[in-house]
Amino acid sequence: MLRRFLPALVPTMLAIAGFGVGLADPYFMEIFIMVGLIGTVAVAWNLMAGFTGLVSLGHSLFFGIGAYTVAYGQVGFGLGPLATWPIAMLMAAASALCIGLLCFRYGLRGYFFSIATLAFSEVAFLLVSATLWLGRSDGMMLPSSPDALRYLQFDHKWPYGLIIVAFLALTLFLSQAFLTARPGYYWRALRDNEGAAEALGVPAMRYKLLVFALSAVLTALGGAIFANTFAFVDPRSTLGVELSIQLLVFGIIGGLGLLWGPLLGAALLIPAGELLRTYLGSGFHGINIVAYALLMIVLALLLPQGLGGVLGARLARPSAEKRATADQAPAVEAAS
């Protein structure tokens, strides 16, 4: 049991430690919140990309659904997170199922699935940017309320940090539970060879929709938490393609084959981006993204397993030796 959930437990402990560091300094807490939030969403994204081979470039759609449900729920109907978070997750599941049905029925895979998901999120981005009651491209502020607790409004950042630790733990443990049971095996089989998997009794459509819905629901929860944490949503930061690309980058750099890989990517890149911005200053607007892009290209070419993959291989060295001995066993058998 412990062994099974070790890949979820260790990052959770590290996140709690990171939260502890954040308690010391509000600036650290802000960075912790971004790493924990976007990193966890990247983990949810990677259930599709890394484990099922469905690379979504439209995950900002689900993040945006979460963020805008919270914002409009509060502004329009006075609803708090108790109502808006479940609604957001339901809406994300429903849209994922619709988009998934469309794409998979059309036979889209590989690049074309990515582009189609990108198209869906672009439609949402453009429509929200044009919709008056959603604040157009200016976005929406969540008004502060006297009933602060009901709307999760705090004077400090640390309660949000705590919520994000819980979100991270939920995502990691839930994902690991799925990955080590039948769905995880089916997803990996589908990633590699859909025809062979189906012939072995894997219902391809059902399990691709399952991973899509699960990933979308967790992403929407992330978006909902984002809205409550920052009390502000706008199309660019919650629905824009930049967010989806960011998930891909964290996954590539951290390692797509690992549950915690994208989290590692976020933990390295978000603080690095902050440092770059601090040292280069705002005078060189854009130069930090140039550095970011260069890093992304170089790492994608040179380290296909990501940094986490390299790290994971180091940690798994003992079991690799065990495999080597198992390899020799048949030879011994044949000789005797």
Binding site: Y185, N193, A197, L200, G201
Partner: peptide, 21 residues
Amino acid sequence: RPFHGMSVLENVKVAAFARHP
């Protein structure tokens, strides 16, 4: 073509799940 990145046992397990959830 075995499923990539899976052990021999895991490859067979994918199939066994058809009868044993």
